[in-house]
């Protein structure tokens, strides 16, 4: 019995030291993420008067230049994806289905790829895109994504823009089919 007491004392001392160490570490400057460094997973409504920045130029897989301004008058979903992003590859067939179902009613999806151009070109046929895929250097596309409100860099990331150019919401992570149907049917141009 008496020999157990020193052991308990040593264990207790170690636990106190560990707790103190953890506290010091957790309380050091920068130990916790700043609010500006993190992002909400799921959808985030945009500000009341937030507009799509004008003049955002993109390049299609075939080299054709276009602008997001070309789709004024349509409900626009800009969906950033990448070949290394499994949730993106899971979400794309649902987006393709939405474009087929609602394209004639005023929906336009655009898919900038955060990838090397050749990687995006190789993957595109298998993904059966029926909407424009935008390419550039990964840095260019990340820059575009930052301009559209994703400073944190996670994918998939979507921005929804109404027919009159108002940013409606941002989505970090996949949309489900049900979420997309509800979102699109509510916001298609009248």
């Amino acid at each position: 019995m008496s020999s157990a007491r020193p052991n308990l004392a040593i264990i207790a001392a170690c636990l106190v030291a560990l707790a103190a160490g953890v506290a010091v570490f957790l309380l050091r400057p920068g130990a916790q993420p700043d609010a500006d460094d993190t992002a909400q997973v799921g959808s985030t409504p945009a500000g009341d008067n937030e507009r799509l920045p004008a003049g955002l130029k993109l390049t299609e897989l075939d080299g054709r230049a276009f602008s997001l301004d070309d789709y004024k008058g349509k409900l626009l979903i800009v969906n950033f994806w990448a070949t290394w992003c499994a949730p993106c590859l899971h979400e794309i067939p649902v987006l393709v289905q939405m474009q087929a179902r609602y394209g004639a009613k005023g929906l336009q999806i655009v898919g900038p790829a955060v990838d090397d151009i050749e990687d995006a070109r190789r993957a595109a046929p298998g993904l059966q895109f029926n909407y424009p895929v935008a390419v550039g250097t990964p840095e260019d596309i990340l820059d575009l994504m930052t301009k559209l409100g994703n400073e944190q860099g996670g994918l998939p990331f979507s921005v929804v823009i109404t027919a009159d150019g108002r940013v409606l919401e941002r989505q970090l992570g996949e949309y489900s089919e049900a979420e997309l149907v509800a979102l699109i049917e509510k916001n298609l141009p009248r």
Binding site: D37, A39, Q40, V41, G42, Q152, E174
Partner: peptide, 19 residues
């Protein structure tokens, strides 16, 4: 602290992601 321990495949609203 960032409530990032959501293990479901579909992201849930209000969970915060680390950089």
């Amino acid at each position: 602290g960032s409530r990032a321990l959501d293990l479901s495949r579909k992201p849930q609203g209000e969970s915060t992601l680390l950089t």
